[in-house]
Each structure stands twice: as structure tokens, then as C-alpha cells.
Simulated assay, not measured.
Amino acid sequence: MRILLADDSVLLREGLRLILTDAGHEVVDQVGNGELMVARALALRPDLVISDIRMPPSHTDEGLRAGVRLRAEWPQAPIMLLSQYIVVSYAEELLASGQGGIGYLLKDRVSDIDTFLDAVDRVAVGGMVLDPEVVAQWMGRRRVQDPLGQLTAREREVMELMAQGHTNAGIARAMVVTEGAVEKHTQRIFAKLGLRGDQEVHRRVTAVLAFLQG
């Protein structure tokens, strides 16, 4: 696939380029700030944008802000955000659109090349991948009233794995059940959340967002 890299660290960009090209992908451009990321992504329309969250000038959340701006102009833009630290609210902003094609990984995950490349593939085709540490922290931020109290323990387990980006097949392997059983769980989850099959929003993303906010 064609990939755009955005990070102010030339060393990290080169490392990512080597990993991606070795896997058969093409890095179409590399940029060092959010403004250029948005401009080049709109011009090139790559299959995936991989962006650091913290970039110049303030090194806070420029990559995230750039991703939000990009999605305002290109709603289906597939974006993988990388971060050295967990900030749960970052992923929440991009997930709020209800669109798929979103990833949020800690940079440490890149060293697990197979896992990283699998995440790249899933986000590029419209899936969602959240770092397990992000999911764990997000789940700890419980509200006083849990809108998802109607979910069973098994359904919550399915939702946690769904949040990490697993397909139904992956969830089935992790839970040691059949794909049919997982499908029944997901359909019950969607029904409890009022997510109908004819809705345009990405039901899995919407369900996970509701779950993590619950």
C-alpha cells in the first residue's frame, strides 16, 4: 500500500520506512509537522497516514489536531497515530466521527514488527486498532452511571477485544469460542446499543466508543 509518514524525528521516520518497505509497502512521502501532513495527505490520498501525535511547534498534540483537520476534509482518511505516552482523550476525538480506519498505538509496539504491520493492514482497510494499554486505561475511567450496564460480562469481553482491533475470527480465537458465537454476541451488543444494520456510521467504531466512554 501507499503510506505517508509524519514525524519530526528523522530517525524514527527512517526506521518506519525500512519496516514498511521490507513488508512490501511504499512510503510516498515523509513530513515533519502537522500542516505538511494535512497538505500532502490531501494531495496524495495515500492508503494510510502514520503520524506522531506530538510534533512541532509545541510538541503537544499537533499530530492529533492535524488528523482531525484531515478528516474534516477527507472523512474516510485512514490514520494511525503513534504516541510515546498514553493520553486516552486523543483517540476519543478521532473515534467520535464514527468512521473506521483509525489506529492509536504506543511507539513501543513498533518493535513488535508483526503486530505493528498487522495493525497497519487493519487500519488501512477501514478497521480500528487501539493499543491494549489505551484500552486498559480507558476502561478505568468509569462514569458514575454506566450506560452499558445492560451488557453481560461475556459481551464486555467481546467489546474489549473489539476495541483492540480484533476481527470476529480473532475474538473467537482469544475467547476459545466459535466465530458464530462471537457474531451472536456482537449482534446482541449492537441491538442493545440501538445500532441498526442500515445505519451509515461504522457500527463497530460507534459501539467501541460508547463502551470506552461507559
Rank of each mutant, 00 (worst) to 15 (best):
M1L: 14
I3P: 14
L11V: 15
R13T: 07
R13E: 04
I19M: 14
D22T: 13
V27S: 05
V28E: 10
Q30A: 09
Q30H: 00
V31D: 05
V31E: 09
E35R: 11
L36H: 11
L36I: 00
M37S: 08
M37N: 07
V38N: 10
A39C: 06
R40M: 09
A41M: 05
L44I: 13
R45V: 13
R45C: 11
P46D: 10
D47A: 01
I53P: 06
I53V: 15
I53N: 04
R54Q: 14
R54D: 11
R54T: 04
R54G: 11
M55H: 09
P56R: 07
P57T: 02
P57M: 03
S58R: 14
D61T: 11
L64D: 07
V68W: 01
R69I: 05
R71I: 00
A72C: 09
W74P: 02
A77Q: 01
P78F: 01
I79L: 09
M80T: 02
Y85P: 00
Y85R: 11
V88R: 04
V88W: 11
S89R: 14
S89C: 03
A91G: 14
E93A: 12
L94T: 01
A96S: 15
G98Q: 03
Q99S: 10
I102L: 07
I102M: 00
G103P: 01
G103Y: 00
L105M: 12
K107N: 08
K107W: 05
K107Q: 12
K107R: 12
V110N: 08
V110Y: 10
S111C: 08
D112T: 11
D112G: 13
T115Q: 13
F116M: 09
L117A: 13
V120N: 03
V120S: 08
R122L: 08
V125S: 07
V125D: 07
V129W: 00
V129Y: 01
D131C: 02
D131Q: 02
D131F: 05
P132A: 06
E133T: 05
V134C: 07
A136W: 01
A136V: 12
Q137E: 05
Q137I: 05
W138C: 02
W138P: 06
R141N: 13
R141P: 01
R141E: 06
R143T: 12
V144R: 10
V144E: 03
P147S: 08
G149T: 09
Q150Y: 01
L151E: 00
T152R: 10
A153I: 03
E155Y: 06
E155A: 08
R156E: 14
E157H: 14
E160W: 04
L161V: 06
L161P: 01
M162A: 14
A163G: 14
Q164H: 05
T167F: 02
G170E: 14
G170F: 07
I171M: 11
A172D: 10
A174S: 15
M175L: 15
V176M: 15
A181L: 10
K184P: 02
Q187I: 01
Q187K: 15
I189Q: 12
I189S: 07
A191Y: 13
A191V: 07
A191R: 15
R196L: 12
G197T: 04
H202C: 05
R204N: 13
V205K: 02
A207F: 05
V208S: 07
F211Q: 13
F211P: 07
F211V: 12
L212H: 08
